[in-house]
């Protein structure tokens, strides 16, 4: 555990630790029985998908043996998951970069300047949380059609950025505020312009913020389904969630292929999540609120 996670003995268990050690066994049992049950509830579904993905479609074993990659070959080459994966990566990276740039600018303005309308803007940003994308499917479709962006991955990048932007801007301004303004002022005294001071002093210190926000932006856009379903019409512009839905909707579902496709969609986000989940518990709570 790095310094970022909480000290191990803290919170409600912390105080009672002396007593707890005395009755260690019973206390541990209260802990481990529900935890084990919950772990099973979480992991069995993942395991089941792995089993389906790696065993031959004819097999009924509850374990992935004999092991085969045939399902992945079908999914990647025949069903087009290679293309879907590529599209998801393009959109995810586009959102990650665009969102970080825009929210760094906005966050800097919110954190370092006093200006008319600042309070109102923050309130509006919070209120957008009550206006989610599903309800705006129809008008957004009309707008993107006017812009000629239907069936264009760029529409997805814009829509994903827009709906993540309000909270990430607030988060970023929190991060920036934690960087002492004196550092920038010192650089400016030494002859840097404001822009130069920001780029060479503050920006490097914000690396964890960019990593955290970028990761969650990527996960969010990777998982977005309805926008992609609504705005993309040709199969070579589908993203992974749409591809999965397409596979589910097949006349007779090929479970091996479905599981392999699911695994392809799951692995990147689960790996990213495993690395950044500590930020969530540490204090990115408000970002998590978005779900």
């Amino acid at each position: 555990m790095s310094a970022i996670t909480a000290p191990t003995v803290r919170g409600i268990g912390g105080g009672g630790w002396g007593q707890m050690r005395a009755k260690l066994n019973s206390a541990r049992l209260h802990l481990f029985v529900p935890l084990t049950l919950y772990l099973l509830f979480t992991l069995v579904p993942f395991y089941w998908m792995v089993v389906f993905a790696f065993r031959p479609t004819t097999s009924h074993n509850p374990y992935p043996w004999p092991i085969t990659l045939a399902n992945f070959k079908v999914v990647w080459n025949v069903l087009g998951f290679g293309t879907f994966f590529e599209n998801s990566v393009i959109v995810g990276v586009g959102v990650l970069i665009g969102l970080n740039v825009i929210c760094a600018m906005a966050g800097y303005a919110l954190a370092r300047f006093k200006f008319a309308g600042r309070g109102a803007l923050i309130l509006i940003l919070l209120c957008t949380q009550f206006v989610p994308g599903v309800m705006l499917l129809i008008p957004l479709f009309v707008i993107f059609r006017h812009l000629g962006l239907i069936d264009n991955l760029f529409a997805l990048i814009i829509a994903d950025i827009v709906f993540q932007l309000p909270l990430t801007s607030l988060l970023m301004s929190g991060f920036i505020r934690n960087v002492p303004v004196e550092l920038e002022e010192a650089a400016m005294v030494d002859g840097c312009s404001r822009v130069r001071a920001f780029l060479s002093v503050t920006l490097p210190l914000l690396r964890p913020a960019f990593v955290a926000i970028g990761s969650f932006a990527f996960i969010g856009s990777w998982n977005n389904f309805l926008f992609a379903l609504m705005f993309m019409s040709s199969q070579n512009h589908f993203t992974l969630p749409v591809g999965l839905d397409y596979t589910i909707g097949e006349f007779s579902v090929n479970f091996g292929a479905l599981a392999a496709g699911g695994l392809i969609a799951a692995v990147p986000v689960v790996i990213i999540f495993a690395f950044v989940q500590k930020y969530l518990v540490q204090g990115l709570t408000f970002g998590a609120v978005k779900g």
């Binding site: 977005n224 969630p241 496709g261 969609a265 689960v270």
Partner: peptide, 16 residues
């Protein structure tokens, strides 16, 4: 981990 999983992927897993 399931927090990071999309609705469609959840469907995929539970259909299985």
């Amino acid at each position: 981990a399931p927090w990071a999983v999309s609705g469609v992927l959840t469907t995929t897993i539970w259909l299985l």
